[in-house]
């Protein structure tokens, strides 16, 4: 019975393979289990626990949910939550050694701090853009020699001015009524120290940039996250007591803080402290005498999410946005189902 429970709820890491990877708790799959889905049961089991939220990084636990749904969140975060990114670059002048296309590509990848929720998608074929769907930036840098530079200096930082083009050189130009809607600090690149290009005296760039709203599936630059992923909560089970020198070795097989050695009556004993910290390096399997003492599991329905925002939106907001996108998809699916049912009804009639 314990075995069955294990198969249902745990993913097990063995020496050469991962077993029980698929969730099998479908209704009727196991005799004696009631796996029918009910809201009450779900509400009782499901919980979200925010572990840490620091700056642009968020770690939270999502427990009691199927892998498919958790994965949906991850996928939506990566590919379907919209952000603003530079899409059109109008090159008036670019005498730097960076080619126009490469420069445009580099500019596109700069994360822009602007709330995409306040903008519309730009219509296809529209090159001009409107205040509702476009943010305009200007990049106008010209490199000159520094007249105050010491004579014998060879350091480019000293002898040239503006020889490095940073994101801070991007200047936001409000379109239409944007100046009233947004303040100066709202719309800007997330980081102002991203190096875009290097110039030498006489070289200059004069560009007009259009930022539009888009999604990560279209291009990675629209992805709101640096990465969003999850891992399953590791669980380490000691199947027998490990004592003495073996305990020391056992503890060393895991990431720091996962296990500890306690001394009981002068006998060293290994104890699991916090299996969450384990990186699953499976070091234990290199010790033939220890590998049978431990079972490495992962909880199938406990997802440790980590979301790293690019900075346009806070990671917690992103997760909420992702939820909204998922809800939108569900709603659409339901309405499609309804529509299909309706047509079927009509056809029957």
């Amino acid at each position: 019975m314990a075995d069955l429970e294990q198969i249902r709820t745990r993913v097990t890491l063995t020496e050469h393979e991962v077993i029980n990877t698929h969730s099998t708790d479908f209704p009727g799959n196991y005799a004696g289990y009631d796996d029918t889905w009910s809201l009450a049961k779900f509400e009782e089991k499901f919980r979200v626990n925010i572990v840490s939220l620091e700056g642009s990084e968020l770690e939270f636990d999502m427990v009691g949910i199927d892998a498919a749904i958790a994965n949906a969140f991850r996928r939506i975060l990566l590919a379907e939550v919209p952000t603003m990114a530079i899409e059109k670059v109008f090159v008036h002048n670019n005498t730097s050694i960076i080619q126009d296309e490469v420069l445009a590509h580099r500019l596109g990848l700069i994360p822009i701090h602007a709330d995409p929720r306040l903008f519309e998608y730009r219509q296809e074929g529209d090159d001009e853009g409107t205040a509702e769907d476009t943010l305009e930036f200007h990049l106008n840098v010209k490199c000159t020699r520094n007249p105050q530079a010491p004579k014998d200096s060879t350091d480019p930082d000293e002898i040239y001015k503006d020889h490095k083009v940073y994101t801070k050189h991007l200047k936001w130009v409000p379109l239409g009524n944007q100046a009233e809607l947004y303040s100066e600090g709202d719309i800007k690149p997330v980081h102002d120290d991203i190096l875009i290009a290097k110039l030498r005296p006489g070289q200059e760039m004069d560009l007009k940039l259009h930022c539009v709203k888009g999604i990560g599936r279209d291009h990675a630059k629209f992805s709101p996250v640096a990465t969003a992923s999850y891992r399953l909560l590791p669980e380490i089970v000691l199947t027998e007591e490990v004592k003495g020198e073996r305990a020391d070795r056992l503890v060393r097989c895991f990431s720091p803080g996962v296990m500890e050695v306690t001394e009981e009556n002068g006998v060293k004993k290994a104890r699991v402290v916090n299996s969450r910290l384990d990186t699953c390096s499976r070091e234990i399997f290199r010790h033939p005498d220890l590998k049978d003492c431990v079972k490495l599991n992962k909880l199938r329905d406990h997802f440790i999410f980590s979301v790293e925002s690019t900075g346009a939106l806070a990671p917690d907001v992103l997760v909420c946005e992702a939820t909204k996108v998922l809800m939108g998809k569900c709603r659409k699916f339901l309405s499609e189902l309804d529509a299909a049912a309706d047509t079927e009804q009509q056809n029957l009639r």
């Binding site: 050469h16 393979e17 991962v18 990877t21 698929h22 949906a72 991850r74």
Partner: peptide, 10 residues
């Protein structure tokens, strides 16, 4: 990335 479940092999 498609199913969201772990792969069987390392």
């Amino acid at each position: 990335g498609i199913t969201g479940e772990p792969l069987n092999a390392y």
